[in-house]
Design a protein around this nucleic acid. Structure first.
Lengths: 160, 160
DNA sequence: CGCCTTGTTCATTATATTTTGAACAATCTG
DNA sequence: CAGATTGTTCAAAATATAATGAACAAGGCG
């Protein structure tokens, strides 16, 4: 295990750093998943912080996040007391985990808010009221459609 | 036009502030779209900064971003030299604009990077090589599928 | 039990992002 | 054209987010 990242490793890590950005996850989370994804052997915290030159704290927190939606799996290594991890490579599993952990809560919250808003329409002055009711209705339509797209998109990912 | 946000306005603005967050857009962009979305009349910069209590700079920049992907349309108001805007309310248009402006460039970039990576595989030591080739192949599969999902998702949004 | 090894937590520090506001440019108006 | 009015830009300030590392907790092991 070389102490520095190879050209290929850098490229792969960079891909996942960008993905992390899109998903509003810390850069270090992308780095961790990236290096595990391209590593044939499972790695422990020491390996990871050495390879990526990040602190132990970041490594620990990053792995916690990755574990939270199943992007990383613990691997038992005989004769070593440390925790080793390997990247989960089945996209479906990762996406499902991510959606459940990080997306659903927001969607649920959104529904609650929409209910609250409905009650506020009546208080509007007439004239505005008609327009506003139309807009809220439209917003609900968007929300419903987003909710419908989600399971479909999940299904779009074939098992391998 | 009241100087402060009503309860309903606050709720609606808050929804779009959250959406802006998910899309990695500044909070002020969400505020601007939100207040325009729920406003029966088109608004100018002065209206917006007064209503939202944000600076002229933020307002100008925020509107620029919203214009860039067609989330907001200029509206001519007779006898007023200022620029007025109304929210584009057709979801399909906004999403299409956003994808073209903010998503496509990244996808294209991704393809280029993947090509570069392919060339790096051969340099790997045997043993690692087999595993790494499998991973890169998998990554390409993901990329291809994401590219396929996009047009489908766009089509999922019915015109109204 | 006393000493390692390992992983986690969290206050502090560092970094990245957003907002502000004043200077500027552009355009209208009399 | 001179003076307003309006919108944009961008350096500096404010804010939000992530990384660091030392203190701590939890287990193992002799």
């Amino acid at each position: 295990m070389k102490p520095a990242l190879s050209e290929l490793e850098k490229e792969v890590v960079d891909i996942f750093v960008r993905i992390a950005g899109v998903l509003s996850l810390p850069r270090s989370v992308g780095e961790l998943y990236g290096i595990l994804f391209i590593s044939p052997e499972p790695m422990c915290i020491d390996d990871l912080m050495l390879k990526l030159k990040i602190s132990k704290g970041s490594t620990s927190q990053g792995l916690k996040i990755l574990r939270s939606f199943g992007a990383v799996n613990p691997v038992y290594v005989a004769g070593d007391r440390r925790d080793f991890y390997a990247a989960e490579a089945e996209l479906r599993k990762i996406v499902a985990g991510f959606v459940n952990e990080q997306v659903r809560p927001h969607l649920d919250n959104g529904k609650a808010r929409m209910a609250r808003i409905e009650g506020l329409i009546d208080a509007e002055e007439t004239g505005r009221k008609e327009f506003i009711a139309e807009r809220i209705e439209r917003l609900q339509g968007w929300q419903k459609r987003a909710g419908a797209l989600l399971p479909f998109a999940l299904n779009f990912i074939k098992p391998e």
